[in-house]
Design a protein around this nucleic acid. Structure first.
Length: 211
DNA sequence: TGCCAGGCCCTCTTTAGGGCCTT
């Protein structure tokens, strides 16, 4: 897999996992993957698949996600789905909301099928904490409302959350471009911004725009 | 319905603690 951090920020795969819990190191597995591919700011492809983790999920996860054990019973195994998702990712850069969480599951599930993921992942939450410092909080649902982004009819399903994260990602690009008069933002610049101390965000963007 | 992990980030910090996010 080759990845291109110098690629434009508006071309990427935005993805989201639903899982049986919080930690793959403690036996949790993916139960659903959803993704939206954007190219030059437009949605050009989608991926959504439930997957059977091989055990019953808790009642908490059933009600949190709306994904029942009954639904998972006939779903393909994680390994089969993850191989297909690796093909879907291809060479694109990745985005997720609170990416450290989704990255852990992506790496753990891909390792199970012999794929060592080495791509770039940007975090929309870290960016939103810098760009929307006055938002009430930086949960996906709050940011969607805060920025008047079209919501899906459900939350906590993989494709719906991916769709909303993709809209948030594009909105952040749009807001940065209009606020700092930037002609184009690279994926790498977005990643750098997500690691810039909050107090230095303005100077980072100002210096970048004058380069 | 929740507090199982872990990275980020602030503060009454660095020999640490706790809230925010994700499921």
């Amino acid at each position: 897999m080759h990845h291109y951090p110098e690629a434009s920020a508006d071309t990427a795969v935005i993805f989201d996992f639903e899982t049986s819990g919080l930690s793959p190191n403690y036996g949790d597995r993916a139960i659903e993957i959803g993704a939206v591919r954007i190219k030059s700011g437009k949605v050009v492809d989608r991926f959504q698949q439930l997957m059977n983790p091989g055990f019953r999920i808790s009642g908490f996860i059933e009600s949190y996600t709306g994904i029942s054990n009954e639904l998972l019973k006939d779903a393909p195994a994680c390994e089969e789905v993850m191989e297909a998702f690796a093909d879907f990712i291809g060479e694109d850069n990745l985005v997720a909301h609170n990416a450290s969480f989704d990255k852990r599951f992506l790496e753990a599930e891909l390792e199970r099928v012999g794929i060592h993921f080495r791509g770039n992942i940007a975090c929309s939450m870290l960016l939103a904490r810098r760009i929307y410092q006055r938002a009430p909080n930086h949960k996906l649902g709050t940011l969607v409302a805060y920025r008047n982004i079209q919501a899906e009819d459900v939350f906590h399903r993989a494709l719906a959350d991916s769709e909303m994260t993709s809209r948030l990602w594009l909105k952040m690009i749009e807001d940065l471009q209009s606020q700092y008069l930037l002609p184009e933002l690279s994926f790498a610049t977005m990643q750098k911004l997500s690691r810039t101390p909050k107090s230095k965000v303005h100077s980072f963007l100002s210096s970048f725009s004058s380069e």
